[in-house]
Design a protein around this nucleic acid. Structure first.
Lengths: 88, 88
DNA sequence: TGAGGTTACGCCTATCGTAATAATG
DNA sequence: CATTATTACGATAGGCGTAACCTCA
C-alpha cells in the first residue's frame, strides 16, 4: 500500500467515477483503475462495486475511506509539525 | 514522502545507526542513507545529527518520530479494519 | 586508521500514458 | 450503441545493490 494509492482511492470514492477522479488527479484513467485494483488485491477485499455508471463504494470501502482520510490527514500533520518546529 | 521512508526513518531513529537499521530492514546501507536524506530534503529540515558514532535525533526528528509511528499504526489499523469487515 | 555515513553507477521493477478491448444498461 | 472500466504494451522514473569515497575522533 502506498500513499499515492490512498489518494487515488479517496478521489475515486468521492467522484464515484474513475474518469473524473483521473482528471482531478491529473493522471490517465488506466493507471488509476489499476492502482485501485491493486489496492483491493492487497487488502484482500473489493472496495467498490463496478456499475456502467461508475463506481459505488461497498461497505468495506466506506470503512476504508475513513481510515484513508485519517492517514492522509496524519501525513499532512506530520509535515506541518516538522516545518513549524523547524521554522522556530 | 512514502510509507517505506517512514519505516526506514523509524528504524534509523530507534537504532541510532544506519548500518544496524539497514540490517534490520534487510536492505543495504546506501539506499537507506539516501532515503533518509531525501526525506529530510522533502521536509525541508534535517532530522538527525550525524556523528562519528552514528545518528542522533534532532528535536525536529523527535517530533517527526511520533507522527511517523502514528501514521504507520494508522495504516495497520486500516488494513485490519477492512479485513475484519470482509471476514464478516 | 577505523568506524560510519555518503556518492557513483548500473540494473531492475513499478508506474505511467496511448491504444485497443470488454462489459453493460 | 454509448459510456465506463479494463487489458496490452512500450517507455520512463524511482529504488536497490555493489563498489568506491569522504569524514572525523
Amino acid at each position: 500500500m502506498s500513499l499515492a494509492q490512498l489518494e487515488y482511492f479517496v478521489a475515486v470514492a468521492e467522484e464515484a467515477h474513475v474518469g473524473r477522479a483521473a482528471q482531478r488527479l491529473h493522471i490517465a484513467q488506466p493507471p488509476l483503475s489499476r492502482q485501485i485494483r491493486r489496492l483491493e488485491d492487497e487488502l484482500g477485499a473489493p472496495l467498490f462495486e463496478r456499475t456502467p455508471r461508475g463506481m459505488r463504494l461497498l461497505p468495506e470501502g466506506e470503512v476504508f475511506l475513513a481510515h484513508a482520510r485519517a492517514i492522509l490527514r496524519a501525513v499532512g500533520d506530520a509535515q506541518r509539525a516538522v516545518r513549524a518546529r523547524h521554522g522556530v
